[in-house]
Amino acid sequence: MDLIAEGITEAFRLLLKGDREVLRIALLTLRVSGFATIISAAIGVPLGTVLAVWSHRGRRQVAGFVNAGMGLPPVVVGLWVSIFLWRTGPLGFLRLMYTPTAMVIAQTIIALPIVTGFTMAGVGQLDPGIRLQMLSLGASSWQLLCILIREARLSVLAAIMAGFGRVVAEVGASMMVGGNLLGQTRVLTTATSMEVSKGNFGLAIALSIILVAITYVINASLTRIQQQS
Protein backbone atom coordinates (compact mmCIF):
# COMPACT_ATOMS: atom_id res chain seq x y z
CA MET A 1 0.00 0.00 0.00
CA ASP A 2 2.95 2.28 0.67
CA LEU A 3 3.87 1.90 -2.96
CA ILE A 4 0.49 3.11 -4.19
CA ALA A 5 0.60 6.09 -1.85
CA GLU A 6 4.13 6.84 -3.00
CA GLY A 7 3.03 6.61 -6.64
CA ILE A 8 0.07 8.91 -6.16
CA THR A 9 2.16 11.43 -4.22
CA GLU A 10 4.81 11.26 -6.91
CA ALA A 11 2.20 11.83 -9.64
CA PHE A 12 0.89 14.96 -7.95
CA ARG A 13 4.39 16.20 -7.22
CA LEU A 14 5.41 15.78 -10.86
CA LEU A 15 2.23 17.44 -12.11
CA LEU A 16 2.24 20.35 -9.66
CA LYS A 17 5.93 20.97 -10.11
CA GLY A 18 5.35 20.86 -13.86
CA ASP A 19 8.29 18.47 -14.28
CA ARG A 20 9.61 19.33 -17.74
CA GLU A 21 10.49 15.81 -18.76
CA VAL A 22 7.15 14.37 -17.74
CA LEU A 23 5.38 17.25 -19.45
CA ARG A 24 7.31 16.62 -22.63
CA ILE A 25 6.55 12.90 -22.50
CA ALA A 26 2.86 13.59 -21.94
CA LEU A 27 2.70 16.13 -24.78
CA LEU A 28 4.50 13.80 -27.18
CA THR A 29 2.06 11.03 -26.28
CA LEU A 30 -0.83 13.35 -27.17
CA ARG A 31 0.80 14.52 -30.36
CA VAL A 32 1.73 11.11 -31.68
CA SER A 33 -1.51 9.35 -30.78
CA GLY A 34 -3.61 12.41 -31.65
CA PHE A 35 -2.03 12.72 -35.06
CA ALA A 36 -2.35 9.00 -35.75
CA THR A 37 -6.02 9.16 -34.73
CA ILE A 38 -6.70 12.15 -37.00
CA ILE A 39 -5.13 10.43 -39.99
CA SER A 40 -7.00 7.20 -39.25
CA ALA A 41 -10.27 9.13 -38.93
CA ALA A 42 -9.66 11.08 -42.15
CA ILE A 43 -9.19 7.84 -44.06
CA GLY A 44 -11.17 5.35 -41.98
CA VAL A 45 -14.47 7.21 -41.58
CA PRO A 46 -15.11 7.74 -45.33
CA LEU A 47 -13.72 4.30 -46.10
CA GLY A 48 -15.91 2.59 -43.51
CA THR A 49 -18.97 4.48 -44.77
CA VAL A 50 -18.32 3.51 -48.38
CA LEU A 51 -17.71 -0.12 -47.39
CA ALA A 52 -20.99 -0.19 -45.46
CA VAL A 53 -23.09 0.75 -48.48
CA TRP A 54 -20.95 -0.71 -51.25
CA SER A 55 -22.91 -3.38 -53.06
CA HIS A 56 -20.03 -4.96 -54.94
CA ARG A 57 -19.32 -8.66 -54.51
CA GLY A 58 -15.84 -7.94 -53.13
CA ARG A 59 -17.35 -6.11 -50.15
CA ARG A 60 -17.42 -9.21 -47.97
CA GLN A 61 -13.71 -9.87 -48.48
CA VAL A 62 -12.72 -6.27 -47.82
CA ALA A 63 -14.96 -6.12 -44.74
CA GLY A 64 -13.45 -9.35 -43.46
CA PHE A 65 -10.00 -7.94 -44.05
CA VAL A 66 -10.83 -4.75 -42.11
CA ASN A 67 -12.34 -6.71 -39.23
CA ALA A 68 -9.30 -8.95 -39.03
CA GLY A 69 -7.11 -5.83 -39.00
CA MET A 70 -8.92 -4.63 -35.86
CA GLY A 71 -7.05 -7.31 -33.97
CA LEU A 72 -3.63 -6.50 -35.42
CA PRO A 73 -1.14 -6.87 -32.55
CA PRO A 74 0.95 -3.70 -32.06
CA VAL A 75 4.22 -5.64 -31.82
CA VAL A 76 3.56 -7.17 -35.23
CA VAL A 77 2.95 -3.72 -36.68
CA GLY A 78 6.08 -2.47 -34.91
CA LEU A 79 8.20 -5.22 -36.40
CA TRP A 80 6.94 -4.72 -39.97
CA VAL A 81 7.17 -0.95 -39.83
CA SER A 82 10.74 -1.38 -38.52
CA ILE A 83 11.63 -3.69 -41.39
CA PHE A 84 10.52 -1.04 -43.87
CA LEU A 85 11.96 1.97 -42.05
CA TRP A 86 15.36 0.63 -41.00
CA ARG A 87 17.88 2.73 -42.81
CA THR A 88 19.03 -0.31 -44.78
CA GLY A 89 15.37 -1.21 -45.46
CA PRO A 90 13.24 -0.32 -48.51
CA LEU A 91 12.14 3.05 -47.06
CA GLY A 92 15.38 3.64 -45.16
CA PHE A 93 16.26 6.67 -47.26
CA LEU A 94 13.45 8.56 -45.51
CA ARG A 95 15.44 8.31 -42.25
CA LEU A 96 12.29 7.88 -40.20
CA MET A 97 13.35 5.10 -37.82
CA TYR A 98 13.41 6.20 -34.16
CA THR A 99 11.43 9.38 -34.84
CA PRO A 100 7.95 10.43 -33.70
CA THR A 101 6.89 10.20 -37.36
CA ALA A 102 7.68 6.48 -37.37
CA MET A 103 5.49 6.11 -34.29
CA VAL A 104 2.66 8.01 -36.00
CA ILE A 105 2.94 5.66 -39.00
CA ALA A 106 2.80 2.54 -36.82
CA GLN A 107 -0.07 3.85 -34.70
CA THR A 108 -2.03 4.90 -37.80
CA ILE A 109 -1.75 1.35 -39.13
CA ILE A 110 -3.05 0.08 -35.78
CA ALA A 111 -5.92 2.56 -35.50
CA LEU A 112 -7.09 2.59 -39.13
CA PRO A 113 -8.82 -0.82 -39.18
CA ILE A 114 -10.50 -0.02 -35.84
CA VAL A 115 -11.90 3.32 -37.03
CA THR A 116 -12.89 1.82 -40.39
CA GLY A 117 -14.47 -1.26 -38.85
CA PHE A 118 -16.55 0.56 -36.23
CA THR A 119 -17.66 3.17 -38.78
CA MET A 120 -18.66 0.40 -41.16
CA ALA A 121 -20.70 -1.29 -38.43
CA GLY A 122 -22.34 2.00 -37.41
CA VAL A 123 -23.29 3.11 -40.92
CA GLY A 124 -24.43 -0.42 -41.72
CA GLN A 125 -27.03 -0.17 -38.97
CA LEU A 126 -28.67 2.90 -40.45
CA ASP A 127 -32.07 2.49 -42.02
CA PRO A 128 -31.40 1.64 -45.68
CA GLY A 129 -34.36 3.88 -46.49
CA ILE A 130 -32.23 6.98 -45.82
CA ARG A 131 -29.92 6.08 -48.63
CA LEU A 132 -32.68 5.33 -51.12
CA GLN A 133 -34.51 8.50 -50.15
CA MET A 134 -31.41 10.63 -50.66
CA LEU A 135 -30.65 9.02 -53.98
CA SER A 136 -34.22 9.58 -55.17
CA LEU A 137 -33.91 13.22 -54.14
CA GLY A 138 -30.94 13.42 -56.49
CA ALA A 139 -28.09 13.56 -53.95
CA SER A 140 -24.59 13.18 -55.40
CA SER A 141 -22.34 10.41 -54.05
CA TRP A 142 -20.39 13.02 -52.11
CA GLN A 143 -23.54 14.44 -50.50
CA LEU A 144 -24.69 10.92 -49.71
CA LEU A 145 -21.40 10.16 -47.99
CA CYS A 146 -21.65 13.29 -45.83
CA ILE A 147 -25.26 12.57 -44.91
CA LEU A 148 -24.52 8.97 -43.96
CA ILE A 149 -21.60 10.03 -41.76
CA ARG A 150 -23.76 12.65 -40.10
CA GLU A 151 -26.55 10.19 -39.48
CA ALA A 152 -24.11 7.72 -37.96
CA ARG A 153 -22.15 10.35 -36.02
CA LEU A 154 -22.58 8.62 -32.66
CA SER A 155 -20.96 5.46 -34.01
CA VAL A 156 -18.34 7.45 -35.87
CA LEU A 157 -17.27 9.25 -32.70
CA ALA A 158 -17.20 5.93 -30.86
CA ALA A 159 -15.02 4.59 -33.67
CA ILE A 160 -12.58 7.49 -33.29
CA MET A 161 -12.49 7.08 -29.50
CA ALA A 162 -11.79 3.38 -29.85
CA GLY A 163 -8.97 4.12 -32.28
CA PHE A 164 -7.44 6.73 -30.00
CA GLY A 165 -7.83 4.46 -26.98
CA ARG A 166 -5.99 1.68 -28.71
CA VAL A 167 -3.00 3.70 -29.89
CA VAL A 168 -2.55 5.77 -26.75
CA ALA A 169 -2.42 2.51 -24.82
CA GLU A 170 -0.09 0.53 -27.04
CA VAL A 171 3.52 0.08 -26.08
CA GLY A 172 4.99 -2.61 -28.34
CA ALA A 173 5.05 -0.72 -31.63
CA SER A 174 6.13 2.58 -30.08
CA MET A 175 8.99 0.89 -28.26
CA MET A 176 10.20 -0.80 -31.44
CA VAL A 177 9.96 1.99 -34.00
CA GLY A 178 10.52 4.86 -31.58
CA GLY A 179 13.27 3.34 -29.46
CA ASN A 180 12.05 5.02 -26.25
CA LEU A 181 14.60 7.84 -26.71
CA LEU A 182 14.67 10.32 -23.87
CA GLY A 183 13.33 13.68 -25.02
CA GLN A 184 12.60 12.42 -28.52
CA THR A 185 10.41 9.36 -28.72
CA ARG A 186 9.64 8.48 -25.12
CA VAL A 187 5.90 8.34 -24.57
CA LEU A 188 3.91 7.55 -21.43
CA THR A 189 3.51 3.85 -22.14
CA THR A 190 7.15 3.20 -23.05
CA ALA A 191 8.34 5.32 -20.12
CA THR A 192 6.07 3.40 -17.73
CA SER A 193 7.33 0.08 -19.05
CA MET A 194 10.95 1.19 -18.71
CA GLU A 195 10.51 2.55 -15.18
CA VAL A 196 8.90 -0.71 -14.09
CA SER A 197 11.81 -2.65 -15.54
CA LYS A 198 14.22 -0.37 -13.69
CA GLY A 199 12.30 -0.92 -10.50
CA ASN A 200 11.17 2.73 -10.14
CA PHE A 201 7.65 1.71 -9.25
CA GLY A 202 6.67 5.07 -7.74
CA LEU A 203 7.52 6.95 -10.92
CA ALA A 204 5.86 4.23 -13.02
CA ILE A 205 2.64 4.58 -11.03
CA ALA A 206 2.83 8.36 -11.45
CA LEU A 207 3.22 8.03 -15.22
CA SER A 208 0.36 5.54 -15.40
CA ILE A 209 -1.91 7.90 -13.50
CA ILE A 210 -1.05 10.72 -15.90
CA LEU A 211 -1.74 8.44 -18.88
CA VAL A 212 -5.12 7.38 -17.54
CA ALA A 213 -5.99 11.01 -16.76
CA ILE A 214 -5.15 12.10 -20.31
CA THR A 215 -7.17 9.27 -21.83
CA TYR A 216 -10.07 10.13 -19.57
CA VAL A 217 -10.06 13.83 -20.43
CA ILE A 218 -9.85 13.21 -24.19
CA ASN A 219 -12.55 10.57 -24.20
CA ALA A 220 -14.77 12.58 -21.86
CA SER A 221 -14.56 15.56 -24.24
CA LEU A 222 -15.39 13.39 -27.22
CA THR A 223 -18.27 11.81 -25.29
CA ARG A 224 -19.58 15.26 -24.53
CA ILE A 225 -19.53 16.17 -28.20
CA GLN A 226 -21.20 12.83 -28.92
CA GLN A 227 -23.97 13.32 -26.38
CA GLN A 228 -24.72 16.87 -27.48
CA SER A 229 -25.28 15.84 -31.06
Binding site: L27, L28, L30, R31, V32, G34, F35, T37, I38, R95, Y98, T99, P100, T101, V104, Q184, S221, L222, R224, I225, Q228, S229
Partner: peptide
Protein backbone atom coordinates in the same frame (compact mmCIF):
# COMPACT_ATOMS: atom_id res chain seq x y z
CA UNK B 1 -22.52 25.96 -29.55
CA UNK B 2 -22.00 22.40 -30.58
CA UNK B 3 -20.24 23.39 -33.76
CA UNK B 4 -17.76 25.78 -32.16
CA UNK B 5 -17.09 23.18 -29.52
CA UNK B 6 -16.20 20.57 -32.11
CA UNK B 7 -14.06 23.09 -33.98
CA UNK B 8 -12.30 23.94 -30.75
CA UNK B 9 -11.68 20.30 -29.95
CA UNK B 10 -10.43 19.52 -33.43
CA UNK B 11 -8.14 22.54 -33.63
CA UNK B 12 -6.76 21.68 -30.21
CA UNK B 13 -5.88 18.19 -31.38
CA UNK B 14 -4.33 19.54 -34.59
CA UNK B 15 -2.28 22.06 -32.63
CA UNK B 16 -0.99 19.30 -30.41
CA UNK B 17 -0.20 17.15 -33.40
CA UNK B 18 1.87 19.75 -35.20
CA UNK B 19 5.47 19.02 -34.60
CA UNK B 20 4.94 15.29 -34.31
CA UNK B 21 6.33 15.06 -37.80
CA UNK B 22 9.13 17.55 -37.25
CA UNK B 23 12.53 16.04 -37.65
CA UNK B 24 15.17 16.20 -34.96
CA UNK B 25 18.60 17.81 -35.22
CA UNK B 26 20.41 17.54 -38.52
CA UNK B 27 23.37 15.42 -37.41
CA UNK B 28 22.42 12.28 -35.63
CA UNK B 29 24.28 9.22 -34.53
CA UNK B 30 22.77 5.90 -33.55
Amino acid sequence: SRRSMSILAISLIIALSVGAVAFGASKELI
